[in-house]
């Protein structure tokens, strides 16, 4: 399997606070990876650096062998933790905009997913409920045939039924040759979908192992191990 993300001594500081601390890590394609950790552990900061939204204080991050830039953005599908789409646009305009900017965007796939949700494409994004806005954003991100999906807290702040829908959408639509990086602290909900788990604690990587290994060698579920590692 080829490496899609490589971090070497990656560090990000905000003043005196260190969000990510000398992170050494490689992520390979063909896996669903859980980026797990409590709030403030550096998950979002790491994902932002992958997407070029933050500049590392020191160290290096490479996406498909290149620093974050135009080429990495072409192959990375990013779902931010907040609603980031222009809210004055209609859903069909947003679909068109994704078509315009991303050559790997599959319009039919997006329209089918929207139809499954019975979402009227003529509706303006801001008139949708928060849950539906998040779903539209997820649909647009997952309708790309990307090489790396970065999903930042995709199930945070939604009800359990919506969580099921979101996880099902991710599993049914991701490019199997790609790597899917899911950041969350809701381990129980995502555990069954993960191939690999990364535990981040105060910006440091404290665990990087396959879910199968965690279960077999430690005799615990990822959720049980998470509770043990991050016990207050």
């Amino acid at each position: 399997m080829s490496i899609i993300v490589e971090a070497r001594e990656l560090t990000k500081r905000y003043g005196a606070d260190t969000a990510v601390d000398h992170l050494d890590l490689t992520l390979e394609k063909g896996q669903i990876i859980g980026l797990l950790g409590p709030n403030g552990s550096g998950k979002t900061t790491f994902i932002k650096m992958i997407n070029g939204l933050l500049t590392p204080t020191s160290g290096i991050i490479l996406i498909n062998g290149e620093k974050p830039g135009v080429n990495s953005k072409r192959i990375t599908s990013y779902l931010p933790e907040r609603c980031a789409l222009p809210d004055w646009m209609r859903i069909d305009d947003l679909v068109k905009m994704y078509c315009d900017f991303f050559t790997d965007f599959n319009r039919e796939k997006a329209r089918n997913m929207l139809a499954d949700l019975h979402l009227d494409e003529k509706k303006t994004y801001k008139t949708l409920s928060k849950g539906n806005r998040e779903k539209v954003q997820l649909i647009l991100a997952m309708a790309r045939e990307a090489e790396l999906y970065c999903l930042d807290e995709p199930i945070g702040g939604v009800d359990p039924a919506a969580r099921d829908y979101i996880l099902r959408t991710i599993l049914q639509n991701y490019n199997e040759e790609a790597a899917v990086l899911i950041s969350t602290h809701l381990i129980q909900d995502v555990e069954s979908t993960l191939d690999r788990a990364l535990f981040l604690k105060e910006g440091t990587l404290v665990l990087n192992d396959t879910v199968d290994n965690i279960r077999e060698k430690r005799g615990k579920s990822v959720d049980a191990l998470f509770r043990e590692v991050f016990a207050c």
Partner: peptide, 13 residues
């Protein structure tokens, strides 16, 4: 702002 999460991850310089 929040929209930067979308616009700044477009494949443009």
């Amino acid at each position: 702002s929040d929209r930067g999460y979308f616009y700044l991850t477009l494949p443009v310089t």
